[in-house]
């Protein structure tokens, strides 16, 4: 598997770290890095909690939230379900709801156990193979990335900095050069600043689209994503003007 992803597929772009590979289509599972040396075989993948399925593979990097991946595939499967039997139709409906709540920071203690119960019922009692395999995206991500579920629920933190409701964008005043790129690009006009005035994101206006994060020149890298910690208070007005000295540094 390592060969397929890193040699044939060219590895993870932009110097990012590999996180997991999802195999077998929507009802397959996610396999973490330490299982990457598995041969791609029917039995091997099944034993790892995934499946050969359609043979497809989705490689994911460190920016992917595994709870969100589970939510995404379960959401697809709620539409694919025929709706005849209860464990699949109702079980997936509730699983999707709970997972959505977790990614929104509304997860509660006991949610993981509730999901496990629903998964067991769907696996054991569904009418067909769709329902029996539908909880796989959840079960495999829980097996290998349980700490991400727990971070979402207990700390309201998304470790991959991906779940919009759980992250904030913040401009590091030490790094901001007041170039104005992010201010012009922000579709919500949530960034305040001017020439030589350090930029600040108005958290109330911010729609968390991530545009500022993308456009901030790499050499500055001033826009950061925060999760699970409060956004630092904006720097006082009198310190916002960039002094000559820092300009010379550019």
């Amino acid at each position: 598997m390592r060969d397929i992803i890193f040699t044939i597929g060219g590895g993870i772009p932009n110097g990012k770290k590999f996180k997991a590979v999802q195999t077998g289509g929507p009802s397959g599972g996610c396999i973490p890095e330490d299982k990457l040396d598995l041969p791609v075989g029917f039995d091997e993948l099944t034993r790892a909690g995934s499946m050969m399925g359609s043979g497809g593979m989705i490689a994911m990097d460190e920016d992917t939230c595994m709870v969100d991946v589970a939510r995404y595939f379960i959401s697809f499967l709620t539409d694919e379900s025929c709706g005849k039997c209860v464990p699949c139709r109702e079980g997936l409906r509730q699983m999707h709801r709970i997972l959505t709540n977790i990614t929104k920071g509304q997860g509660k203690q006991g949610d993981i156990e509730l999901l496990e119960e629903l998964a067991e019922t769907a696996v054991e009692a569904s009418l067909c193979a769709l329902g029996k395999s539908a909880p796989n995206p959840f079960l495999s991500t829980l097996k290998y990335f349980r700490e991400e579920y727990e971070a979402h629920i207990t700390e309201k933190r998304c470790p991959a900095l991906s779940c919009k409701e759980l992250i904030s964008f913040y401009i590091d005043p030490e790094k901001c050069k007041a170039c104005g790129t992010c201010r012009k690009a922000c579709p919500a006009s949530a960034i305040n600043g001017d020439k030589k005035i350090i930029h600040i994101i108005d958290q109330d206006k911010c729609t968390k689209c991530g545009t500022c994060f993308e456009v901030c020149p790499t050499k500055f890298g001033a826009v950061t994503k925060l999760s699970g910690v409060p956004v630092p208070a904006p720097i006082p007005e009198d310190q916002r003007t960039i002094k000559k000295k820092s300009k010379e540094n550019e």
């Binding site: 209860v86 464990p87 109702e90 509730q94 019922t121 009692a125």
Partner: peptide
């Protein structure tokens, strides 16, 4: 019993 319980709970949501 566990599966029946879950099924009933799921239907009671309706």
């Amino acid at each position: 019993d566990r599966i029946r319980k879950t099924i009933i709970e799921l239907l009671m949501a309706h």
